[in-house]
């Protein structure tokens, strides 16, 4: 049996072993998601693949409602999955680290919506816990969700 890898400098990743179910941290080391699936670039499907077809690449990490399909089978609808572009990944280890903040990612939209539309409208809901009133008055409208 020939070796399953070669001597090229680089890194080998097995999807289930190194990527799926890993926690994703943003640039501030804040947990933002778990990798539920991987999106690949397009390849010929239901037709013969010519021998010189380039292999697909990972285009995005997908997170979302995957637990039901993992238990009962089937395929989660892509519209229900949130994409994190692969280009934003900077490190793959016990966790996957991104080069961007969570506010730039689609997958944090529900949290942003709750923060801006609900929590932010409650009196006192726009201050950041742990900061003194003088530090945040008028300068930070990010809210405290």
């Amino acid at each position: 049996m020939t070796p399953g890898t070669d001597d090229r400098p680089g890194r080998w990743l097995d999807a289930q072993l190194h990527l799926l179910d890993r926690q994703v941290l943003d640039v501030d080391d804040v947990p933002v998601a778990v990798v539920d699936d991987l999106e690949l670039s397009e390849v010929p499907f239901d037709q013969e693949i010519s021998i010189d077809t380039p292999p697909p690449v990972i285009t995005a990490l997908l997170s979302g409602a995957a637990i039901a399909t993992r238990i009962f089978g089937g395929r989660p609808p892509e519209s229900r999955m949130q994409r994190t572009p692969w280009a934003a990944v900077v490190d793959i280890g016990v966790v996957i680290k991104l080069a961007v903040g969570r506010d730039t990612l689609d997958l944090a939209w529900t949290e942003r919506w709750v923060r801006d539309r609900i929590i932010g409208r409650i009196p006192g809901g726009r201050h950041i816990p742990g900061r003194k009133r003088s530090e945040h008055s008028g300068s930070d409208e990010r809210g405290g969700s």
Binding site: G4, T5, R8, P9, G10, R11, W12, L13, D14, A15, Q16, L17, L40, P54, P55, P56, V57, I58, W86, A87, A88, V89, V90, D91, I92, A99
Partner: peptide, 19 residues
């Protein structure tokens, strides 16, 4: 049972190609 990818380097944004 699994799918293997290869990264030519670990620099940011490096493509992970299906091997």
């Amino acid at each position: 049972s699994d799918v293997r990818f290869f990264l030519e380097s670990e620099t940011e944004g490096q493509s992970a190609r299906l091997y």
